[in-house]
């Protein structure tokens, strides 16, 4: 039996605003019910990528599909399966919250028979029931954001795209947003979320997609981030131990900070225990030995440095070739 199509599928996506390349060959796929954190510096192409997936920007070339529907060939069908919340909320300030939700449901092809029920359900799940007859202009930023999320999910989308959803929210509203994202993912909604607050993304994301200068510099599950071992010596020479460890298979580059050594370790927990036992047996004065998973932020910064290093190398090569 063939595997189901990914909820979001992007292949070799290119896009440029006049004179500026925003996306240069972006490819990735997101499975059903995943939460993909989209990270990258300002201008990396995050918002453009989201707008392309939402069908707001036509790509120069490349393929885009949402729930198996070609976004370019069938934009209306794809939009009916997608919810998109931009960093501004785009609400009608003169309509009541009920009418905002009702209009969003109608405009996303929710059948008439289900419409009132969907509006009531969404209002209930977002704590908007008491606010239904008020206008968005009379609500706080957090409440407006909930209304905007309501308009993006009232049609029960397969894919929800959130661009900087936590911007400007207080801590309580952020915690509520995280809970909501987890709840939607648990229901099978696939989410693509961009934010500059990586610690928060790490809290609920299953995957991370890193962009830099319109290109993917990293993509994978958050839980399988590279394992790091941190080791502290009670004495002895850290530099000689670092040299010895570097030569061993499965151990990455060792960095030394005072008496502390840290390195990427590819082995499993048994291999980790064996390494510790061997070091102790060899008389290495190990004071502490602990696994430390790279945080999304560390991984992101490391990938960013690598990408920029490669970029500088490529620029130097091109400069040399030109010369």
């Amino acid at each position: 039996m063939s595997e189901p199509a990914p909820a979001i599928s992007v292949a070799d996506l290119h896009f440029s605003y006049d004179g500026t390349v925003a996306l240069a060959g972006v490819s990735f796929a997101a499975g059903t019910g995943t939460v993909t954190a989209l990270v990258g510096p300002n201008g990396a192409g995050k918002t453009t990528l989201m707008r392309c997936i939402a069908g707001l920007e036509p790509p120069e070339r490349g393929a885009l599909a949402v729930a198996g529907i070609d976004v370019v060939a069938e934009p209306r069908a794809a939009r009916a399966r997608t919810g998109f919340l931009q960093d501004f909320f785009g609400l009608y300030d003169r309509l009541s919250v009920r009418r905002c939700l009702d209009y969003a449901a109608r405009a996303r092809l929710v059948p008439e028979a289900e419409r009132d029920l969907r509006v009531a359900e969404v209002a209930s799940s977002l704590g908007l029931t008491e606010l239904l007859e008020r206008t968005p202009s009379a609500l706080s930023r957090g409440q407006r954001q909930r209304v905007a999320i309501g308009t993006a999910i009232v049609h029960g989308p397969d894919v929800l795209i959130l661009d900087e959803p936590a911007a400007g929210l207080d801590p309580e509203a952020r915690a509520e947003l995280a809970s909501l994202i987890r709840a939607l993912a648990a229901k099978g909604v696939t989410l693509l979320v961009s934010s500059h607050i990586l610690a928060e993304l790490e809290d609920y994301s299953t995957d991370v997609l890193m962009l830099e200068a319109g290109q993917v510099i990293g993509h994978g599950p958050v839980g399988r981030a590279e394992r790091q071992i941190a080791l502290t010596l009670a004495g002895g020479d850290p530099a000689s131990l670092a040299a010895r460890l570097s030569a061993e298979e499965g151990i990455g580059a060792v960095t030394t900070t005072g008496q502390e050594l840290s390195f990427a370790f590819a082995g499993d927990e048994a291999a980790q225990a064996a390494l510790l036992a061997r070091l102790v047996r060899e008389g290495v004065p190990v004071a502490t030995f602990a696994e430390r998973r790279s945080s999304m932020q560390e991984l992101y910064l490391s990938r960013l440095r690598e990408a920029r290093g490669q970029g500088a190398d490529q620029s130097a090569d091109q400069g040399g070739a030109a010369a």
């Binding site: 707008r51 939402a54 069908g55 707001l56 209306r76 069908a77 939009r79 009916a80 997608t82 998109f84 931009q86 501004f88 785009g90 609400l91 009608y92 300030d93 969003a104 405009a107 996303r108 092809l109 308009t151």
Partner: peptide, 14 residues
């Protein structure tokens, strides 16, 4: 001007 146009464009209206 009210920044609601993109929300409309992202809908399934024909």
């Amino acid at each position: 001007a009210a920044r609601t146009w993109d929300a409309q464009r992202a809908s399934a209206l024909g």
